[in-house]
Amino acid sequence: MQGTIDGFSYGAVTPVAAFLMACLGAALGLRCTTRSLRTERSFKAGWLALGATSIGSGIWTMHFIAMMGFSVEGVVIDYDKAITFASLAVAIGMVAIGIFIVGYRGATRMALVTGGTITGLGVATMHYLGMAGMRLPGQFEYDTITVTLSVVIAVVAATVALWAAVSIHGFLPSLGASVVMGVAVSGMHYTGMAALNVHLHPGALVGAGSDDAQTAPLVPLLIGPGCFLLLAAVVVMFDPLMVMGTPDWDDPKVLNGAGRRPGIPAPRPVPRQVPRFGTHADPASFHSGPRDPAPPGEW
């Protein structure tokens, strides 16, 4: 028996909320990836890991917020928690592989294509694995052509996002890249949902399931990733490297011709040598430049 699918049970609320979460995850992930390219190797892995977790969590949260508006007439939908969280792990893991490739290999064509393909496949795998975790009295059937289109959208979106992370600088361009990725991820999700048909088992219509019954299983699952995204936003906003002292203070792009940042006075000369003995230092013994050679007979 063919099931009647409604992907917008709450109207525009779930698509808009899902899109905003996708944009938030993309913005945090792209920001972290950009920061990783401007820091020392000791900080690079941390920024890349935070970026991958942000993008993966944002995509996963976007998917299940959108699924709050998904319903099949007459049945109640539940979710297998193990498979659902496995889809989150897959999303973060595959996105991490793609981001680390670009983070350590740079913006080469091969790195972008490889990283974007792996990241995009991770997004698509997360989507369909998450769908496999749904439990209802029926089975899913997908249109192959539409599924292929959704995977292509995911790969292209991921490749463009990684290119933007390493090539576009500045707040507004980064914000624009995050919006583009949010649109692409949302488009991939709803393209994949358009490929779906539900065939219910005989006798599966046990009464109309309420909207609250559809969303109740998802709300507890979204708390953890949602809190992580908020925490990641705080970390990015306050930027720990700015507090501890960024390793790129000496970047020639941010220094003027005198070797210092504009508007910051030159540092005072540092003494080359300090007297080793005595309690009072003789000012004459401090030299900012090379010492004169000692006269003959003196050490």
Rank of each mutant, 00 (worst) to 15 (best):
T117N: 08
L205S: 11
A89F: 09
T159H: 05
I97S: 06
M1Q: 14
P296R: 00
W47M: 02
Q273C: 14
D6P: 07
G115H: 04
A17L: 14
A107N: 13
M62H: 06
I101V: 14
I153A: 05
G209K: 02
L162A: 06
S9H: 10
W249V: 13
I99L: 12
R31E: 10
V206Q: 14
M193S: 03
I145F: 15
V254E: 04
D211N: 15
S186G: 13
F238W: 09
F238A: 07
N256I: 04
P220C: 07
L121S: 07
I92N: 01
A124N: 12
M110S: 12
R41L: 07
D248H: 14
T117G: 12
Y10K: 11
R109L: 13
L229S: 05
I145K: 13
S174F: 01
P295N: 06
L231N: 03
M237H: 10
M94N: 04
A26I: 04
A66N: 04
V270Q: 12
T215F: 00
S71A: 10
V123C: 02
G56C: 03
G224E: 02
I97H: 03
V166S: 10
A89W: 00
I5S: 06
L196M: 15
I145R: 12
P295S: 02
P290G: 08
E73M: 09
H63Q: 13
P296L: 00
E298F: 03
R268Q: 12
L20G: 08
F277L: 13
H199Q: 13
G69W: 08
G115M: 11
L136Y: 15
G192V: 06
R261F: 09
F64R: 09
V147C: 02
A177D: 11
S167Q: 10
L37G: 15
I145Y: 10
C227H: 06
G98Q: 00
L121Q: 02
R31T: 13
G46Y: 04
G170Q: 03
M193Y: 00
G29W: 01
A281C: 00
F286E: 05
V198R: 07
R276K: 12
V235E: 04
A12T: 09
A204K: 04
M242D: 13
R276L: 15
R41I: 07
S87T: 01
A232Q: 06
D6V: 09
I92R: 04
D78E: 12
A194Y: 09
G226V: 05
T148G: 15
E298S: 10
G209C: 05
A164H: 05
V113F: 03
G187K: 01
M134C: 03
A294P: 10
L50D: 00
P220R: 07
R261L: 09
T61P: 04
L136N: 10
A284I: 09
A194N: 14
A177E: 07
S186E: 01
A22L: 01
M67S: 03
E40M: 09
A45V: 12
A132P: 06
L28I: 08
Y142Q: 11
S87E: 02
A194F: 12
L162E: 15
S36D: 03
A82R: 03
L205K: 04
Y142G: 11
I264D: 08
